[in-house]
Design a protein around this nucleic acid. Structure first.
Lengths: 216, 216
DNA sequence: GTCTATAAATGGATAGAC
DNA sequence: GTCTATCCATTTATAGAC
């Protein structure tokens, strides 16, 4: 498995820690340019310039602009897997726990890089269908699954009565997003009032809990 | 106001009924190309070709590609105003009324042209900030306002108890959208099971009503 | 693998005839 | 207003030297 011949190849570069040196620069530059300009407006020249390599080197790694785009955005989607860490709110009362999950969720969604990926993927998913699916499965779908697990535990402990945790998770996450996330993706400068967001999330949690209150 | 000189100018063309003949062709073609290719990948050549005019004519109407794009997408956003007609469900019991509103909402959102506009606007809103705002205000914002009005009436009749109809409308519409709309924008071919959508909406309505049940 | 140089096509935008 | 023809910068992609 280990390759003795070219052992100390990575980790000598301050850039992203992808295998190889230049390929890391290329991917980082591509990421930056594509997320900033979108697929159509981005140019391989700009990427090569920012990566400090020649265009020929780009094409040595990736056979086409499309391939580079797909590789680079797919990788970005994959990262989302890592970010949404396990919910550490199991010990709290249910309303406090859900509020915490909601805030954590929104803090993640509203990160500028996450919004940028969202924009590019939505914008290009008509032309890159696989991309839409990859994004969906490594992002929203995964987060929903984890939230469903959490809700299942909540239901098993009898704190709420949730016959279908999958559907409940979808409703919960959708409520939390509300229009705040949409405004984020639309780049509407809207001095995000954290206190107001918290009030909104609190109301969402209240409605959710009312909907899944145990009957006993 | 009326212009006797060039009276019978419009309405002689099978294309879209915008003022003038060629300008209508241009806008229709631009709409089509931009929505299909996105801003960056679309070309003025392609638009001119599809509109059956020369590029010079394009530039006679609009000074730049950006201007044509903005004009054409803004116009498309404006159309959304019209589509979401007044809610005609006031006479139904509240749960049935809300289910109906939800279905109507989703039928609108999932129309291919509406999804296409959504994709383009989200994709380009990073570079065209005014576009994001125009879309938001003529689409989601307006629909939310109308839904809030409806909920206010419901609350005034005592069917539900809704202290803040604005927030409630946001929660309601967000739940209805769930992940179905996201999958639509991501162009994920997902044989839309209408029966399942109806079940989902029914559950969303159930949770919503539980959250705003009058206390009496 | 990596570069310089360039091919070959297309991009947005315009000049000038009618 | 509309067209043909064209300018010139930029595009994706490649050939060939090192």
């Amino acid at each position: 498995m280990a390759n003795p011949g070219k052992a100390a190849k990575a980790a000598s570069n301050p850039e992203v820690a992808v295998e190889g040196r230049k390929v890391g620069q290329v991917l980082a530059a591509a990421r930056h340019i594509f997320l900033e300009e979108g697929y159509g407006s981005a140019s391989m020249d700009a990427i090569a310039r920012e990566a400090s390599v020649s265009k020929a080197t780009l094409y040595a790694y990736y056979p086409s602009k499309e391939a580079l785009f797909a590789a680079c955005v797919s990788e970005e989607c994959g990262k989302h897997r890592i970010v949404y860490e396990a919910i550490e709110a199991e010990h709290l009362p249910i309303d406090q726990a859900l509020i915490r999950v909601g805030l954590q969720f929104m803090r993640f969604l509203l990160r500028p890089e996450v919004l940028a990926v969202h924009r590019v993927v939505v914008g290009e998913s008509g032309r890159f269908p696989e991309l839409g699916r990859a994004f969906y499965e490594s992002g929203p779908c995964l987060i929903e699954a984890r939230t469903a697990e959490f809700l299942q535990h909540v239901s098993e402990r009898g704190e709420l009565e949730i016959p279908n945790p999958q559907v409940a998770a979808e409703l919960f996450l959708a409520m939390i997003k509300g229009h705040v996330h949409l405004r984020g993706t639309l780049a509407i400068a809207h001095k995000l009032d954290v206190a107001e967001l918290e009030r909104f999330i609190t109301e969402a949690v209240r409605v959710f809990i009312a909907g899944y209150q145990p009957k006993s």
